[in-house]
């Protein structure tokens, strides 16, 4: 009989991962750097997800928040919203959690190569896209113009503030940021993410990645269409109620697509006819 106590033979058998580092990002979110306990490398593409679990509490799907080019660890950001995430966010450096993955389809890296790329991230949508952002920055010569738009609710909700500071100064990325509501002391832009499109210089042949809250998609797509960007060049990173992560349990089904195996990255062309998608 096969050894079912192994992830290779049993997709529901999670691997232990050690927490190398934890950072409190905002009031609700914590940023974990992980390493597999068996010292094997986690091999994945930006945009892919993992099922992360804590025994007794359950499993949740979470996208990789770091690039596979950075091999010392892999990162996730956990937002305390439910049973599992709240429990995970009590863990400390040195503790273990359990992972299954990588799962699903990430960004089609071949299609992005030697292209202009724009990433539009809202709120925690910056977590899964950070994997791609780091990837592009690490392989900068593989891509043409790189534009990054980031919107958060207010300055206290900004993710990865250290990164944001670096990106703002970097000549490798045309970075624009806004918050929906300012607070005293905030000197940056105030307004919805769509306001960043006003003075934006973006070629119509740019490949665009969007990730954020459901309401954001429609408005950003509308702006992109004004820029004459084709549907086939627009990619959406869809967060759904994934459960099993392997295309079986049916919870994340959007019409005939399963977010967990056909996605979570979809081209707008593939899903624009899916009424339940966005």
């Amino acid at each position: 009989m096969l050894d079912y106590n192994s992830y290779e033979n049993n997709i529901f058998y999670p691997m232990e991962a050690k927490i190398l580092n934890v950072k409190q990002v905002t009031e609700l979110e914590r940023h974990f750097s992980l390493k597999l306990a068996n010292d094997k490398q986690m091999t994945f593409s930006p945009g892919q997800i993992m099922e992360v679990s804590l025994f007794g509490y359950g499993e949740i799907p979470i996208g990789f928040a770091s690039s596979p080019t950075r091999k010392n660890s892999f990162d996730i950001v956990v937002r305390s919203v439910g049973r599992v995430s709240k429990a995970i966010n009590k863990l400390q450096k040195g503790d273990s959690l359990y992972v299954r993955g990588p799962l699903g389809h990430g960004f089609d890296l071949k299609a992005f190569k030697n292209q202009n790329v724009m990433i539009v991230a809202g709120g925690i949508g910056l977590c899964p896209t950070r994997s791609m952002i780091q990837y592009i920055l690490d392989k900068r010569s593989d891509f043409k113009k790189f534009t990054l738009l980031y919107g958060s609710k207010n300055p206290n909700q900004r993710m990865f503030v250290d990164d944001l500071e670096v990106w703002a100064k970097s000549s490798d990325v045309d970075f624009h940021e806004t918050v929906d509501q300012g607070i005293p002391g905030w000197k940056g832009n105030v307004g919805l993410i769509t306001t960043l499109f006003k003075n934006l210089e973006v070629e119509s042949n740019t490949k665009v990645i969007i990730c954020g809250p459901p309401v954001m998609f429609k408005f950003v797509i509308f702006e992109l269409q004004k820029l004459k960007i084709k549907n086939e060049d627009i990619y959406l990173d869809l967060e759904r109620r994934m459960k099993c992560g392997v295309g079986k349990c049916g919870h994340c089904q959007i019409n005939d697509h399963y977010a967990c195996i056909h996605g979570p990255v979809f081209s707008l062309d593939t899903i624009k006819h899916l009424e339940e998608a966005i």
């Binding site: 007794g56 499993e59 099993c244 349990c249 919870h251």
Partner: peptide, 16 residues
């Protein structure tokens, strides 16, 4: 074939 996955502890509150 849709399913739900849940964890529960045994009465010892450690195993499950």
């Amino acid at each position: 074939y849709c399913f739900d996955v849940q964890d529960n502890w045994n009465v010892d509150q450690v195993s499950g």
